[in-house]
């Protein structure tokens, strides 16, 4: 008779996993060592009775997809009824499609952040391009949408990477976000000034940089030199 290695109870001969703890059962498996008075594992039976994270994700994806499809059909029909042809609905449909990607891709590709970015990064730029050309003219994407999109995405990727590689996360996360935002602001102003003034200028973003970078530096100093073991959870617990 099969024995669960965790629960140490006898199972049916055809058991392939323990119905109590869901541990897989192999024929050659027998619990080793002394019999502890209590199991080593911490189990909340109600968690085992509930849906797994993957099942919850699947249900949410299905619901969100159905809702998005209903919204897409509704805007298309309303637009056709009002104007007799697609006028504003392509904008709404593009936005719904982009929203679907933003919400669902992190769930579909859970645990693979680089893959998520490799889908969402180009998709976001493509969305901007689509919005630009829907009126029949391409007048702002190359000059504004593309560089601003790249700056935004670059800032997010750079900050995310730095946070991911930092071994101890605490105030340094705020510092990275602050520095990233300040640099992104400078980039945004450079692009805008090139487009509208014809030359690179730093005015309001210089103030942001002057405030943000020293603050970020101070937070880095606090994290790595003073607080050492600070964590966001401890500092901002409610």
């Amino acid at each position: 008779m099969a024995l669960c290695p965790n629960c140490r109870v006898e199972l049916g001969d055809d058991a392939r996993h323990c119905p109590l703890c869901r541990a897989p059962i192999r024929g050659d498996q027998t619990p080793q060592g002394a019999r502890p008075a209590y199991p080593e594992q911490v189990i909340d039976p109600e968690d085992l009775d509930g849906l797994t994270s993957a099942e919850k994700r699947k249900i949410f994806l299905e619901l969100f997809t159905v809702c998005s499809a209903i919204a897409a059909i509704a805007v298309t029909v309303i637009d056709l009824l009002l104007d007799g042809r697609p006028s504003w609905s392509p904008y709404a449909l593009s936005a719904i499609a982009m929203l679907w990607l933003l919400v669902c891709m992190p769930l579909i590709l859970a645990g693979r952040p680089w893959l998520v970015f490799s889908v969402l990064g180009p998709s976001s730029l493509a969305f901007l391009f689509l919005i630009d050309i829907l009126d029949g003219r391409a007048d702002w994407f190359l000059a504004l949408g593309l560089p601003l999109g790249i700056i935004g995405e670059g800032a997010i990727v750079a900050c995310g990477t730095l946070v991911a590689v930092s071994r101890r996360k605490g105030i340094n996360v705020i510092a990275i976000a602050l520095a990233g935002s300040a640099l992104a602001c400078a980039g945004i102003e450079l692009v805008l000034s090139l487009r509208f003034a014809g030359r690179p200028e730093l005015s309001w973003s210089a103030i942001v940089l002057a405030a943000g970078l020293p603050s970020s530096g101070f937070l880095f100093y606090m994290h790595y030199r003073i607080v050492n073991r600070a964590s966001l959870r401890k500092l901002f617990h409610l």
Binding site: N6, C21, Q41, I43
Partner: peptide, 15 residues
């Protein structure tokens, strides 16, 4: 109504 696995810490998590 199923038999549950035991836990290292009994008497907890019965909502």
């Amino acid at each position: 109504l199923r038999v549950s696995a035991d836990s290292k810490y009994p008497c907890l998590n019965l909502k």
